[in-house]
Design a protein around this nucleic acid. Sequence first.
RNA 1: GUUCCCUUCGUCUAGGGGUUUAGGACAGCCCCCUUUCACGGGGCAGACACGGGUUCAAAUCCCGUAGGGAACGCCA
Length: 493
Amino acid sequence: MSLSPPVRVRFAPSPTGYLHVGGARTALYNYLFAKRYGGKFILRVEDTDTERSSEEFIRMQLADLKWLGLDWDEGPDFETLKDSGEYGPYRQSQRQDIYKKYAEKLIESGQAYYCFLTDAEIDEQRQRAQREGRPPHVDSPYRDWTLEKAKERMSNGETAVVRFKVGEKKDYTFKDLVRGEVVFPSDMVGDFVLLRSSGMPVYNFCCAIDDALMKITHVFRAEEHLSNTLRQMMIYETLGFTLPEFGHMSIILGSDKQKLSKRHGATSCNEYKERGFLPEALLNFVALLGWSSPDGEEVMSVDQLTSKFAVDRLNSSPAVFDEAKLLWMNATHLRALPNAKIFERLKPYLDAQGLKFTGGPEWQNQAIETFKSSMQTLQDGVGLFTHLSETPIQMTDEGREALAWPTSRKVLEVWKAGLENLPGEFLTEAEFMELQNTVKEKAEVKGKQLFQPIRVAVIGSPHGTELKLLIPLLQKHILIDRAEQALANMSSQ
RNA sequence: GUUCCCUUCGUCUAGGGGUUUAGGACAGCCCCCUUUCACGGGGCAGACACGGGUUCAAAUCCCGUAGGGAACGCCA
């Protein structure tokens, strides 16, 4: 299916840090919409805030997007930052000539003007307006100055911002794809800044010009931009551009119902990546924050999301980011993967911890098969695989309790002796079962008195993976070392 | 303060006048499976913010109120 004119959507992050999960959702919806209707997904970098933006941040954002698999058709390359696409440059900091040209056009036609108001003056105006119960708009005395007069004042080096001259009061109406008809009275805003005194343009101005010049047909963005739409509509109107369609989705909240922010814990995609979340799970989860599938399905791949995506199922009320559900979503996506794939995904996380394993594909397969039901994240996998490495185990309090049982010493002594008598690098499941039986008879214990001390001597905790599956994954010498260690611990107490 | 947006189980949501004793998912609780922990299976509990209208009929439409959010920046 395709729409005419051809769909062009964009994601326009401002590079002031890692990609936020809210940004990921915005990017995803735009991406899905483009794919669904055979359109183009454009990436534009809104780096006009030179104080907070940096190339480093751009790279971080692009790397996060890349990790999520949300590939863009036009925009900077994620490594070289070199543009591809015919509507570039795609970084606003490199489009200043364009903005300047349009600003001059507006100044010359009297629809914008130079303003010399200082911060202090503006602040005072705002406070007075607040006190008197008026909207805190700037009321510039320079509004009606002639261009000559303003230029004269600037000729001695004084700088000025360029403000848009808001016209006579009227209503601006548009049909929001998510919210339906939205009406803004024009006096909702005062004369707003187009160009900073440094000459650098401001968000609303660039955004309007770029969306128009880049032939963007649909703008899906967060609700916080809803009221910006008014200013952008004014710019579109005076410049004679055709308005794109807008869809403002609800914001994402933290568990305290406040806008999701750092104090809620992880908010950046990168943090979720590091904590071992799968990109497809994170995408699936955020997709459901404000959108639902027509068939009620919840667990979906990006391809399935693409084929089911439609704007009429976008929800306009805010959604709380529930990490418990994300965890479940991640576990579900993880378990759906073939074992070899899971290992492949886990590998970088193991490497990062310096964990090396000599086991081949069959060993890897067995290990994943054994552990996957208790993994929610890849980091859980790291913890589990650590048990299989030479890394010394961490003893839990419960573990110590189990070792303190009167029968535990005998169990471990027999266990260790039995291990030492066995040939080969690894135990087979059958060998383990036999040895466990020997321990049972010689130590005269059964049930948890039998297997919990053994498990503690292997992983440090009485709870965990079934022993007959776990033991064959461990090299015998590691098992012996750990049995010795456990026995040593017992004597020292 | 002004303008705009939002309001269904704890959370994400379905439902958009009668099909609803308001459905599903996560979390919670219980049971089964299980020599532990998980996984898996089954079950229980849990919501239409409030007040007015419109209508034979309202979770659904309208108006208020309350609560939350956004914007009013030389942030985006």
